[in-house]
């Protein structure tokens, strides 16, 4: 549980971080809160030889209203996202999601950008931004580009990020007052979801029901067609491919998805 040797570099702004990324190529990894990367390095499941620390990039730590979106800097910590009045008012689903992550230590180090870039299919924020219909802003050598959350999570711990790109901002539709629902099925309060559900504005996203966070498309279609909650929730596990692990086999996960989607929808009337 001691990482393999690595070189440590600290970036002083986004441009510097991009330069360092280009210089060190595949050998390098960005280090934000370190709460996914460092555990993997300690188990020697990840062995970057260079770490580029971006945790001090103050220019990526913000929460602000930008027209009809709420812009969250990639380095905003889970604690900040969970507690900021602005997020709680304009994107309560996201604030709630962040506030359920791990424990206080994790929430004060881990960042929203790190969580999304890490793309753990069982994690909270990936599913939440998917339900929220977020747009992710990536910056690379050629400048900035925007990717819909729907296109960002491409598979098991993989995303649309190129190796020379940094996730800089998460743009959330402002949804003050809109009903939302969130269900995180865990054994212990600080665990990852065995199955998770996030829903807002007719969108329903699932965690740990496949290799990436995904939308419960059949449920959404049924809801749009005017189906009742129970009937729509019955379809929640369609087209999912959940894993089998210590906590659940696929059959139990599918069952949980149906129950939890019904609960999330019932807690989000409208």
């Amino acid at each position: 549980m001691i990482p393999a040797p690595f070189e440590y570099l600290r970036a002083h702004d986004v441009a510097h971080a991009l330069d360092l990324l280009r210089e060190h190529g595949d050998e390098a990894k960005l280090l934000a809160g370190g709460h996914s990367l460092l555990p993997m390095m300690k188990l020697r499941l990840a062995r970057p030889t260079v770490l580029i620390d971006i945790a001090e990039l103050a220019d990526l730590d913000y929460v602000r209203v930008d027209g009809d979106t709420l812009a969250v800097g990639a380095l905003a910590t889970h604690a900040r996202v969970g507690e900021a009045e602005l997020v709680r008012a304009e994107a309560p689903l996201i604030a709630h999601s962040a506030s359920l992550i791990g424990d206080p230590q994790v929430r004060h180090r881990g960042t929203i950008g790190g969580s999304l870039a890490h793309a753990d299919p069982a994690a909270d924020l990936p599913m939440a931004v998917l339900a929220a219909g977020a747009t992710l802003v990536l910056e690379g050598p050629a400048g900035r580009r925007e990717v819909d959350a729907d296109d960002f999570f491409t598979g098991f711990f993989t995303t649309a990020l190129e190796p020379d790109e940094i996730l800089v901002e998460i743009r959330l539709p402002r949804r003050a007052g809109e009903p939302w629902g969130y269900e995180k099925f865990v054994r212990r309060s600080n665990d990852w979801a065995i199955v998770g559900v996030a829903t807002v504005a007719g969108r329903v996203a699932l965690a740990n029901m496949g290799s990436a966070p995904l939308r419960a498309a059949e449920t959404e279609r049924a809801l749009a067609a005017g189906a009742g909650i129970d009937a729509a929730a019955e379809l929640a596990a369609e087209n999912t491919d959940p894993v089998s692990d210590l906590h659940a086999d696929p059959a139990y996960r599918r069952h949980l998805a149906r129950v939890l989607v019904a609960r999330a929808l019932s807690s989000a009337p409208g």
Partner: peptide, 24 residues
Amino acid sequence: MVYDDDGNPLTATFADYAFPSAAE
């Protein structure tokens, strides 16, 4: 403490070995 049939321990980290916290 869980083993698979080949004798591999499946609960050798605190992420997998589920002792409760005060919250539980």
